[in-house]
Design a protein around this nucleic acid. Structure first.
Lengths: 325, 325
DNA sequence: TTGAAAGCGCTAACAA
DNA sequence: TTGTTAGCGCTTTCAA
């Protein structure tokens, strides 16, 4: 590879001039600009990013930590994060943490090693003591002890919206079904606000909360349904659970949505150009990605930033609720 | 951040000694080792990766170019690529190219800029003239003009396997349905080998090939089905198309798999712990990822490497074919 | 076994 | 407007 020195020699100028050409061409006389340009093309010169990063203390890249990219919610989020970063001239390093805190720590170390400028993280493991409020870190759906910026969708609204929609669709007996996450996060609000809304609207309700990790859920769900035969509207913690519940109901000979309606949560799709897999409360994934990136870049550039960003969710009609208008 | 110099000062040794501690501790006397170790911990020293990269001409990171991470096939592939790279101590930069060759070129430039050590690419755009056989590049499913290493699943076997399976399941009239890709790739073999196998086994067959980009496919598929009323076994170019075909058939009042059986291709799943979405010919995604990474690292380290790696596919039973044994 | 010092390719301050 | 040069933090050669 040609270096700046090679270009300078060929163009008959100093290295400083070549550097200026790369960073601030307008400060050069037209004739030198031409000479340098010629030499650069001739030698197919590319500035070495490592030398640059060393000098500038800047990598123009950020890491995204998620449990697994092989999951439609996280891959949608990653998709939009990468797209947004691209707009700002940043690159994305991807980390599938699989909820292993050691792997997460590795990336936190990389911020200190100057290998990435900051981190966006969807984490559930116990890294609280490593995440300092002075490091460029934006958390999704999770509040750390230290004063770390976080972005979340409005999980409280999600529960209310689900209840309201099911009631509007004629349901008389509601149920919530979900797992109990090991680490607390904003997501627990989905259940509480759903049940609260049902109560306020004076509709009968019940709930099934299965401790994680979930096994034999099929059995537990069937048992729950059989012991609450009047349930006609279900809200699940996420779309996956919704799909599982639907399967159970069909195994029991119930028709969805005719006998029982289900609303999931997240709004996952197989890919961008596909439909949601069921009726659902959709998280504003694109907006969450954009806000996360913008917040992180503000922190990196030492600008003031909102510590807590909550974004609204929406109801999306799928094939597991009756169509009303 | 503390630098090597700080550590050297605190430990009362030269910077070279600290460097040796980091890279080859065994070359140090036990007593100096202890001193350096103490200073490193005391200062929470992390080597600056940029200075290191500048010196060593090595980044320990590779870029993955895919059309979009928000797609179960690509996200599965990315998942395994990241996992494999992790094992070898490499980081992953992710690029959603959206088939835009400009974005792909950006990453190719990064190899020359020393920002990544190599690229694994699933590309369909016209970058043939930029990909040189002397750059660390591994291509998936696509053969370049230059002698670039590529990894692919056995698409020929896929077509044969699908035909064989449908025939074994009692089908008497087969059909292939797929789009015609704009850029040629290994994938076109799926159709040809399927039809060839049907012919060799003396089974009636027909095919519907829709030029991409596909619009009004629904109409075209229905028309095709109606004009070939005896079709009872269909192989589709991929699982997405299979899902669409299934939908069309159901709209026409046909039962899947009772009236018509469908086999898709790829073996996509919503996520790791979910089932395939239909009966399918599964690509060995994990093996493809591992082979790609291993090949790329060989190229980076100037070791000899196989230019063409073809991996076997398998049939996976889902809910769109009858169960036979 | 260790320290001193050159140099990786670049930016920016300073001088001209 | 431009050339010269110090120095970013590290590795590695050479000499001690």
């Amino acid at each position: 590879m040609a270096t700046m020195k090679d270009v300078a020699n060929l163009a008959g100028v100093g290295v400083g001039t070549v550097s200026r050409y790369v960073n601030n061409p307008d400060s050069l006389k037209e004739s030198t600009k031409v000479k340098v340009e010629y030499a650069i093309n001739k030698l197919d010169y590319q500035p070495n990013e490592y030398a640059r990063g060393l000098k500038l203390n800047k990598t123009n890249s950020v890491a995204l930590i998620i449990p697994s990219i092989w999951h439609p919610f996280f891959s949608e989020f990653a998709y939009y994060v990468e797209r947004t970063l691209e707009n700002y001239g940043y690159k994305l390093l991807l980390c599938n943490s699989e909820n292993n805190y050691k792997k997460e720590l590795e990336y936190i170390k990389m911020v200190q090693q100057n290998k990435v400028d900051g981190i966006i993280g969807i984490t559930y493991s116990d890294i609280d003591k490593y995440v300092k409020s002075n490091m460029p870190f934006v958390s999704i759906d999770r509040h750390f002890k230290e004063d770390v910026t976080y972005v979340t969708s409005d999980n409280e609204q999600a529960g209310r919206l689900a209840a309201t929609q099911l009631i509007k669709n004629g349901c008389k007996s509601l149920a919530y079904i979900g797992g109990i996450p090991v680490y607390e996060s904003e997501i627990t609000k989905r259940a509480s606000s759903f049940l609260k809304e049902a109560k306020e609207q004076k509709i009968k309700f019940s709930s099934l909360e299965i401790p994680e990790p979930i096994d034999q859920w099929e059995e537990k769900i069937e048992e729950f349904i059989l012991s609450h035969p009047d349930i006609d509207g279900i809200f699940t913690i996420n779309d996956y659970m919704g799909l599982d519940v639907k399967q159970c109901l069909e195994n029991l000979g119930k028709k969805v949505p005719d006998d029982i309606q289900i609303i999931g949560c997240d709004g996952i799709k197989l890919s961008k150009d596909r439909q949601v897999i069921m009726s659902t409360i959709k998280q504003p994934v694109e907006e969450m990605a954009i806000k996360s990136v913008q917040s992180l870049l503000k922190i990196i550039n030492h600008l003031p930033v909102e510590k807590r960003i909550v974004l609204p969710v929406t109801y999306i009609q799928g094939d597991t609720t009756k169509i009303k208008d």
